[in-house]
């Protein structure tokens, strides 16, 4: 099941890239390919239970001082 879906997704991505290539939309092509690549990497890693860095951890890190302050305010 997994192999079939993965191949289907790859074919889908390939068709899209070919279409954009024929039209000559280079910028779209790059975004398109990058989106697919990142998405497929994450999904594959997730499928094989390899830890992926969570973007939310990064966001928490940035806002950490503020949230601590807020919690002190209401404790």
């Amino acid at each position: 099941m997994w192999a079939i879906s993965f191949t289907a997704l790859l074919i889908w991505a390939g068709l899209g890239i070919k279409k954009l290539y024929n039209k000559g939309l280079w910028k779209d092509l790059i975004v398109y390919a990058c989106g697919w690549a990142v998405a497929m990497t994450i999904i594959t890693l997730y499928r094989f239970h390899i830890p992926v860095p969570n973007p939310l951890d990064g966001i928490s890190y940035i806002y950490q001082p503020l949230s601590k302050l807020y919690q002190q305010l209401f404790s």
Partner: peptide
């Protein structure tokens, strides 16, 4: 043009 891969990216992100 970029809707489909962005959708995939959303799914991927939603998993993690």
């Amino acid at each position: 043009t970029i809707t489909v891969p962005m959708g995939m990216l959303t799914v991927a992100l939603s998993l993690i």
